[in-house]
Nucleic acid binder design. Structure first.
Lengths: 230, 230
DNA sequence: GGGCAACCTTGACATGAGTCAACTTCGGAG
DNA sequence: CTCCGAAGTTGACTCATGTCAAGGTTGCCC
């Protein structure tokens, strides 16, 4: 845990970057940059939100637990993402825990400072409203996924979301997470993810470790009802 | 559909009310107030977002459809709520359709005007960031619900959310929607909602039409894992 | 007040998905 | 290179939930 005030930390952030060096300096005044090893927990469900987090590198999973037994991944966040904004904005406890799924660098901005800066800086509150709007739509898609699609359809939609937008061209992609984590994000047991992959071989999905080939995008899209409009 | 510029429309709105009459006037300049009969559709998934909507009275359901067959309720919105803010803010098509579930009054604010007003008025962008934060947490709760709880547990949690916060006192509540709609909101078939109600009779739930008595709140809380921290 | 049409409920059944246990594969450490 | 543990796969089974069909209830409109 070491102080780090270099502007470059936020300059290329897609949300905060465009706000300019003055706001960066203010945000970083007493911010802390933290190295988080894979598997480490950043905070737990129920704790008070004392920091806004920005992923500088690596990947963070937001996990929800149901009293000891079951655990699920609500969403992954990657380099450039701000996460748990709502708990910070509303001054409320976290609804989820956060865990690094690979070695990560996380910037922690004091919640109190962030809130007062939002009060002062119009541009910052606009950027946050935009970011929250994007998050909102991510969550809506997940809810639609869970309520309207079967497990294999959810996997198909997930694979399509990883593929480039090449209008139906065959694609070769690499799974960004361990299969167990992907299963939890998609709301199924790891065993069922296996079976879903096997079922999708019928639609041109070939997988070998983390490498996955999608040889027939149109049939995959048809299978999972891909009207989902990004 | 008739022009309506009286300030009183927004004065008592929990989100926009505190912003003051100047902003109200600006928002209402070319806004339209619409009477929507129960069952009518306000807009459909995929359409461009041309208006921000405010529920003045009644209730609106956001519905998602999966090619003709299945349909689900993502969320209900009530008097005072702003909805589909993200589509307006990001200038993107709706991810869902909206339908009135009872006779409603809806205020429609031009999307373009709303966006430019957010650029001008710091207080408005702050209010929107706050509202989006609340929505975000609503959606997170729903995702946790769907991924971690069984159908009867989801019903139990829903009933508890309708009860006053009287620390375990027996409560008498009224279901705000038709059972079919509640079932879709909770992610189950109407038939399963019936069975879930019967199962909850073991935990002190007595229902008669829309009237529901919760006679044993603590056991209900235990049943549905009520660590959910509001 | 009668009748019709939603809506809700109930039972029987089909099926998707979770669980458990065994086996296989992969990757890292020595 | 080999070993070991974690991760992934597979099959058998169970259970929850959806589906279909029938019957019952409610409430509204004439």
């Amino acid at each position: 845990m070491n102080q780090n005030k270099q502007q470059s930390t936020l300059e290329d952030n897609p949300v905060l970057g465009p706000l300019g060096p003055d706001i960066h300096d203010a945000l970083l005044a007493d911010a802390v940059q933290l190295s988080v090893p894979s598997g480490a927990t950043l905070f737990r469900q129920g704790e008070e939100a004392r920091f806004l987090r920005v992923v500088l590198s690596g990947r963070i999973a937001l996990m929800a637990r149901s009293e000891e037994d079951a655990e699920t991944v609500v969403e992954f966040f990657h380099a450039g993402d701000l996460f748990i904004i709502p708990a910070v904005v509303l001054h409320l406890p976290y609804l989820m825990s956060a865990r690094a799924v690979e070695d990560s660098q996380v910037l922690m901005i004091q919640a109190e400072r962030f809130r007062s800066l939002m009060e002062q800086e119009h541009a910052l509150s606009l950027a946050i409203a935009n970011e929250l709007s994007r998050h909102w739509r991510m969550l809506i898609r997940q809810i639609k996924d869970l309520k309207l699609r079967s497990a294999p359809q959810r996997l198909a939609a997930y694979l399509l979301s990883l593929a480039p937008d090449d209008a139906g061209q065959p694609a070769s992609i690499e799974l960004p997470e361990k299969r167990r984590m992907i299963a939890r994000r998609l709301g199924m047991a790891p065993e069922n993810l296996s079976r879903a992959f096997r079922q999708l071989s019928e639609y041109g999905v070939r997988s070998n470790g983390r490498q996955v080939q999608l040889t027939d995008i149109p049939s995959l899209q048809a299978f999972c009802a891909y009207d989902d409009l990004v």
